[in-house]
Write a protein that binds this DNA or RNA. Structure first.
Lengths: 194, 194, 194, 194
DNA sequence: TATGAATGAGTGTTCATTCAT
DNA sequence: CATGAATGAACACTCATTCAT
């Protein structure tokens, strides 16, 4: 029961931090603000997370892992590699555009070097999923790629940039989101097909 | 003569700041550190730059402008759009890999909101160059693109990603750099061709 | 209990700042000095006062408000307006001469524009009290004044001057203080009577 | 001739500083601004004035001396003491209201302690002039004053306050100025007459 | 004599982290 | 386990004054 409360606390803090990042980016996620949002004391945060950095890294990792699961599921579909690549990119972009500020924070907002290191790792995890799809396509001779590693990075880069860049203009409508997602997916698919 | 020394000072400060950013990112570029690195007093910096922000923005703009000039020259070549696109991406990546840390700071690590705003503008300047190449290719019916805006962002993203992510844990050799650059360029070209 | 300690802290900081001002004027009241004097860290001051300006304004307002209460009480006495005016001036001067340096800082040495604005308001509060006494005297036909506003300012000025100027190079004795207070009060009363 | 140029320079700097104070108070009179206004280098100021403080003190003293001369002339008139007192106060107030910002700077703006010390001396010089008028009035049995010293301070205080206080409200018209001057003079005269 | 570039000490404020209760 | 008051290092910017030329 005590155990349960502890888990509850940890979760509350985690969600509070995540919520603040979603609204105002990393720079709004100060420990005092997180504590207030979570309805606990600042000291309590340090009982569950040794650092601010650790907390941020955990939030980042958690969010990315969820996306990775989704992408992995798509990668394993028994469709053509082309279809899977298209579906994976589309899924990523659509979801990212749903929470632009959160995606921005995770992808591009300035952070301290340790969080940045984790961010690079996360991007590599994304790249790995796409590498698998690309390799599968190579085996099936659907794709024609020289350097799979680099191509995977390109896919991730194209996805990311297109998600980040429209923070300035007007908020995209649902229809726009779909269109952007499709365009990016088309871009990536054609880049690797024969 | 005095004029010369003043220009010299301005340049020294500018280079000192640029160097610190290249080594440790924006957050290592404290005014005191810049002054020390330049061998001047902190107060002197403010004779040449009204703000820390202004100094940072100037460094950013300067670096980006040089790249833009190069890319623009390529874009205006009387070759095929495909050739120009390939050449532009290759040039960008090769140059960026030569000074990776500085490029990194410029692409992914700003901190002051005003600097961040400038960074977004810079990315758009890059995107605009590529948009022109893409539009030219559309007119010549070399390219087949639905949404030129988004495609340009994809190109910038693909380029950027390869620059930021430490693709190889070891320092890439000159040969590797060329190979990476070519791969990315191929990726982008094929993504937009028929 | 914690509440009590917090209030205690606030008070300690307030008194430390007030003490420093009394000794060396506003410019001796640096945040670091206040913290040291209060035996706390600089950061703690900001838990109780959002600004240096706010702290200064609060000290100023507090000191002035206490004087205003005393003067207001005198103004409402059911005596003649002449008696009340005399009593009010006497009270002000006597009290001011008891802590001359603090009064001096409040009357003639502010520095921050916002504090200065508050200081002007405070002088007007003093003037308003005397204006009421003067108006009452006009109604009772005890006084004969053309411009009540200006006359009130004159009263405040006469009072203030005697407080600020180190009339006697030696520290005035209690007896001297009373004499000075009475003289000023006589001056003001005669200035407005028939 | 060289001598002449030096005197010229000194005068130019002096006037430039005075002009800046008249417009923006002491706080606008920074050495660099004074130099620019005077059309000389900052270093040159220090050839004529050893300190910023010394320059400020000299400006203050000079301005006050001119007023003292005027008041002294009035004090020596072969009129009644009452008439002289009235004329002196009127003259002071009218002239002060002509340059309210300058008067404010000289009378009440926060300054560094050494300038402040000089300011107090200046107020005493004013007080001395009025003391002479008051003493003359006592001898002629026009006035009835217990403590001439204090009464003189009251006169100075009343004058000063009435000049300073209307910095907040609307700028007084010429007509207002006369009225204010007369009111203050009446106030002071009645305060000391039988 | 005159310049003005150069100096550098001084200060208000933030915020991650700790620890007495 | 939980609190939240307390800490204190870190940092950009100003401006009177100096001194090499």
């Amino acid at each position: 029961m005590m155990q349960a409360r502890m888990e509850q606390n940890r979760h509350t803090i985690f969600q509070a931090a995540r919520g603040l990042i979603a609204v105002g980016g990393f720079k709004e996620a100060q420990m005092a603000a997180i504590a207030e949002q979570a309805g606990v004391s600042t000291g309590l945060i340090y009982r569950y997370f040794s650092n601010k950095t650790q907390l941020m890294v955990e939030i980042l990792t958690d969010a990315v892992s969820k996306e990775i699961v989704i992408l992995n599921d798509i990668a394993k579909r028994p469709e053509t590699a082309e279809a899977n690549l298209h579906a994976a990119v589309t899924a990523f972009v659509r979801r990212a555009l749903t929470g632009p500020q959160l995606a921005y924070a995770f992808m591009a907002e300035p952070v301290d070097p340790q969080v940045e290191a984790e961010r690079i790792l996360c991007k590599q995890r994304f790249a790995n999923v796409f590498k698998e799809i690309l390799v599968a396509g190579m085996i099936k001779e659907e794709f024609n790629i020289d350097d799979v590693e680099t191509a995977a990075a390109c896919v991730v880069g194209a996805m990311t940039e297109a998600v980040i860049s429209p923070i300035t203009p007007t908020i995209p409508t649902t229809h726009d989101k779909h269109r952007v997602a499709t365009t990016i997916a088309d871009f990536c698919v054609r880049a690797v097909c024969h």
